[in-house]
Nucleic acid binder design. Structure first.
Lengths: 109, 109
DNA sequence: CTAACATACAACCAAATGGTTGTACAAACG
DNA sequence: CGTTTGTACAACCATTTGGTTGTATGTTAG
């Protein structure tokens, strides 16, 4: 995952409205306007939030008649989760190395 | 995880420098200045990045003499990863429900 | 004690963010 | 056909962000 991609993904997730939109479309894909009516803000504001999610590939839009249907992209979510897992692996590697060094000194004959 | 907490966490992760700092301190805790010298930007800028990570509980600082040692907080990372996993579960639940409905109609006597 | 070091923090600035309203246009309904 | 609906997009605005420099403070080394 590139830096720019991670930037876009985490930035998209760093907003409660966008996380809520993500949850909604994970459960059921729906049009931008059916999403918009759930929130206090204007339609244009919701449209912008969807655009941010789309730029991060967290959702995609497909036209159906005059509606634009928003679908979740599970793969992008998994890539983000995986990046966090990799961070944990860094820590684990350090822990292993330290344990190894301790074991080594303990083994000194 | 509260909305505000998720906001802070993902916002903190939505910057390449901050992710890099996170990786470094996961591998080895170190002082703010030893981190700062790795980047082109000013010391104060790095200090601010660390503050953002700290506000998100992704790192903590502990004073050691005149230095401030930055430690990674693995738990906060795990909480973020878990939130993403919950999103995947939402999707999975929908998939299961749909599969159930299909099975049900197929079972009609 | 003094000098150098590590940090903290305020003030400032340009750019990005998150919202608004208004306009335009295509698709669907009656 | 005209009207409503769903979307797109530009212009604008307040606030936040990400950087800078400068100053102050505490801590260690000599």
């Amino acid at each position: 995952m590139s830096d720019a991609e991670a930037d876009r993904t985490f930035h998209a997730l760093a907003d409660a409205t966008r996380r809520d939109i993500t949850r909604r479309v994970l459960q059921r894909e729906q049009s931008v306007s059916s999403l918009a009516c759930r929130y206090e803000m204007s339609f244009a504001a919701v449209q912008k939030h969807v655009a941010v999610l789309e730029a991060a590939s967290l959702v995609t839009k497909k036209r159906r008649g005059r509606e634009q249907i928003v679908h979740a992209n599970l793969d992008a979510l998994r890539r983000a989760a995986r990046l966090l897992d990799e961070y944990e692996q860094l820590w684990r590697h350090r822990a292993d190395t330290m344990a190894g060094i301790l074991a080594e000194t303990g083994e000194e004959s």
